[in-house]
Each structure stands twice: as structure tokens, then as C-alpha cells.
Write a protein that binds this DNA or RNA. Structure first.
Lengths: 220, 220
DNA sequence: TAAGAATTTGCACGGACTGCAAGTTTGAGT
DNA sequence: ACTCAAACTTGCAGTCCGTGCAAATTCTTA
């Protein structure tokens, strides 16, 4: 009953599963663009992919998962990039490289809308999609942070890896929002600016002696 | 048909609405703790609060909103803190002060579980709740970032305020995850460490001349 | 107290998702 | 080729979420 995620010996079975999954995400994305993500029904998607509704739910636990249709290989790629990071590269730089890679992909086909670009647009327009995207993303972030911490032999339980991963995705998120808000600078430029701010510190006059207790000086 | 959010001249009507809302969130939280957030039905909650199911949906658009039951006053408080920030205080320090305030609240009653603490626990256990929490939270973040940018007369469209707000909430999120992962340091200590890392920079050897293009040096 | 506005409620839907049990297809051994 | 078991698909019944509508009901105010 369980549908395997990984490719074994690609027989007919394996191939068909991949095709079905691809057909479902393609149909889901297309319909979401046409009618708005919240006006698409699972029935329509299944119909378009020519499978039963019940089968849809064998592949995706939520409608949103089909629309987001993330590729597990992407995560795998990022993880490998981390593990194979050049000696001496700072973890932050590693993450920056991974983001750069995604941005390349995003811009690879000029004006030609990438599936990724379309999905980003949908996410910014549907709170529902955003929510599920964050949930899926946070799983990935956990893996990335673990790999990053592993890579630099950081003492276990250090917050640094998680902070770096979280900060990176946040920089991307903020950049996307800025575009949406009307900035005419490129996504890449916006992301770069955000990352450099995060790299060099958000508070130029930070005073480490001052702790966070409210009773130190004045109440709020 | 619309249910007003703000208190005007607190007549009987206004009072009853507040009571109903409070009863619903209280019932929702209690039941979620008892049976697990995903096993509670709206019907049960409404029943416990002694209103009809339909009325429940007049107050909350999702079941999760009732369980999260955030208080609009909290946001208002934070916004005021921003607007009344001492001259010369860095925006990052302002956010840190706001977080400190929340942490005080979290620890105010020793061992006695505060509603906030219970909600945090539920959120970490239910992806569903997490998703809705993020949606609600991102609205607040927008407001906070706007206020922050406004406060320091930052050029409009600067990413700095949004980054600071986002980074702060991320530091809290990471701290909570660390606790969940078994750290025995206090939430406050974990948050402080995260914030100080963000304040002073995540990459000690950051090289601003290197841009994010992949074709600069080596492919991934 | 009567008009009028704000709330509550029941009802009827449409749509998401799940468990179950019966089909159908595929891979492997013989 | 034949057979069997595992993997996958499907229909069905059922629960729950969330919404539009219109009829009560309750509050406010003149």
C-alpha cells in the first residue's frame, strides 16, 4: 500500500509511478494557475491526470502538496553540496552557494516561466499554499541544518547551523516579498543584500554585556 | 454580520462577544491538550463553549485559529514599544526587548503552565497548527517590519526591517526547537545566544566582493 | 416601546480526506 | 507459460471542515 519514494531497479512499475506523480503535479500546477489555487478541486486534478481521486491521495496527503510538487532530488543535491563543501568554506558561504544555484535555475530561461517561478507566484498569492510550503520546507531545513552541523563538526546542539539555514531561507523570503511589494531590483540582488547583512551582523552596535532580561534597565 | 474586533463603548453586546471568544479559545485549548489538536472537532469546541457550530465560524475562520487564540493586544503592545523606542536604540535592540518581554511572560509563573507555553507545545506537535501559526505570524511580522522601518526613517523598501523582524522570530523558533531536541539550557539563554549571533554576523570571514553567481569560481 | 442594527442559529451544500475491501497489474520463481 | 504474492488502483461509505443563506433572536438607541 505504501508508495516507495526512491527508484530501485526501474522496472515498469517504478516508471509508471513516476509518470503518475508527474502527471498529477503537472495537472495540479496548470489548474492552479488557471483557476486560482483555492478553486481547484482534487477531483479536477485527478480527472486531468486520469486517475481516481482515491489514487491522488495515495500520492499526496494534501491538495497543496501536489501543487507544490517538490522534487526530493533537489534536497538531495543540496545535501551533497554541503557534504562536499571545499575545506575551509564557511557554512554560511555554503548555503549562499546553494541559494545561488537555485537562483540560476530560476533565471535560466529568460522570461520563459519556470515551474519554480510559477509556484513562487502561487505561494505568494495563497496563504493556504504558503502554510503547507512552510511545513514541507521546515522538514528540509532540519535536514540541511543537521548536515551543515555535521560537516563542520560543530558541537552537537549548537544553534549555529539551524540559524544559518533559517536565516538563508528567510533572506530569500524577504527578497521575494520585496519584489512583490514593487521593488524593481533583481531577486538575486535583493537576496545578496539580505545575505550580506546577515553575514556581517544586523546590529552594528551590539552590546553583548546587555542581556535580555527586562528588569535590567527600563520596562518596555 | 461582521464581528467587530475592537472595543468601543463596552456595552452588553461588546462584553458578550468577548466572553464568547474567550470561552471558545479556552475550550479549544483545553480540548486540544486533552485529545490532541487533530482529534478535536469544531462541534466539541462549540458544544463546550455552549454556542452553535455556525457561531464558532463567525469568530474563527479555522479550527486552528481558536486553538492558537492569539490576543490582538499583544501585537498592539509590540507596535507601541517600537514607536516609543528610546532615541538611539538600534532596531535590533528594540526587537530584542520585545522578545524579552514575551519571555518574561513565559516564565512568569514558575512550573505553572501558562496558556502560551501550552500553545507552544501544541504547535511543535502538530504540523497543522504550525502551518496556521505561520500564516498568522507572517501578518504580524509585516506590521512589525513596517513599524520598525517607519521608526528609523529607513529608506522605503529597505530589507533591513523585515530581516530584523524575521531573524528575531527565527531565533525564537530555533531556540524552541533546541529545547524540544533535548537541550537543558533555558529558553532565554538559547534565544540570547541566537540573537547575539545574528547581531554580530553569521559569517566571520564574509567576503563582500564575492557575489552569488555560480559561474564565479566553481560549479557546485 | 418600536425601529433598526448586530448576532446567533439551523439548514443545506460542496469539498477534503480516511479506512476498508475488493479489483487489477506487475515482478519473480518455477 | 503458470502461479502466486506483493504492489497499486479503485469505489464506497463515512467524518469533518467551512460557507452561503435566511429566519430567529438580542441589543441599542431614538
Amino acid at each position: 500500500m505504501e508508495i516507495e519514494e526512491t527508484a530501485a531497479a526501474p522496472g515498469r512499475r517504478e516508471r509508471k509511478k513516476r509518470e503518475t506523480r508527474a502527471a498529477l503535479t503537472a495537472a495540479a500546477l496548470r489548474l492552479a494557475l488557471e483557476k486560482g489555487p483555492d478553486n481547484v478541486t482534487v477531483e479536477e486534478i485527478s480527472e486531468a491526470a486520469d486517475v481516481s481521486v482515491r489514487t491522488f491521495f495515495n500520492y499526496f496527503s494534501h491538495k497543496e502538496h501536489a501543487i507544490l510538487g517538490r522534487d526530493p532530488d533537489d534536497l538531495e543535491l543540496a545535501l551533497r553540496r554541503i557534504r562536499e563543501a571545499p575545506a575551509g568554506e564557511s557554512p554560511f558561504a555554503t548555503m549562499r552557494a546553494i541559494v545561488a544555484r537555485v537562483l540560476d535555475d530560476l533565471e535560466s530561461i529568460e522570461d520563459q516561466e519556470t515551474a519554480l517561478a510559477q509556484r513562487i507566484r502561487l505561494i505568494t498569492e495563497s496563504p493556504n499554499l504558503l502554510a503547507q510550503f512552510v511545513v514541507l520546507g521546515s522538514e528540509d531545513e532540519r535536514d540541511l541544518a543537521a548536515a551543515l552541523g555535521d560537516q563542520l563538526g560543530e558541537p552537537l546542539g549548537s544553534p549555529l547551523p539551524a540559524l544559518i539555514v533559517g536565516a538563508t531561507t528567510m533572506a530569500v523570503r524577504v527578497a521575494v516579498e520585496q519584489r512583490k511589494a514593487g521593488s524593481d531590483r533583481s531577486i538575486r540582488a535583493l537576496v545578496d543584500e539580505g545575505l550580506s547583512l546577515l553575514a556581517t551582523g544586523l546590529d552594528p552596535h551590539y552590546d553583548p554585556t546587555r542581556e535580555s532580561r527586562t528588569d535590567q534597565k527600563g520596562q518596555a
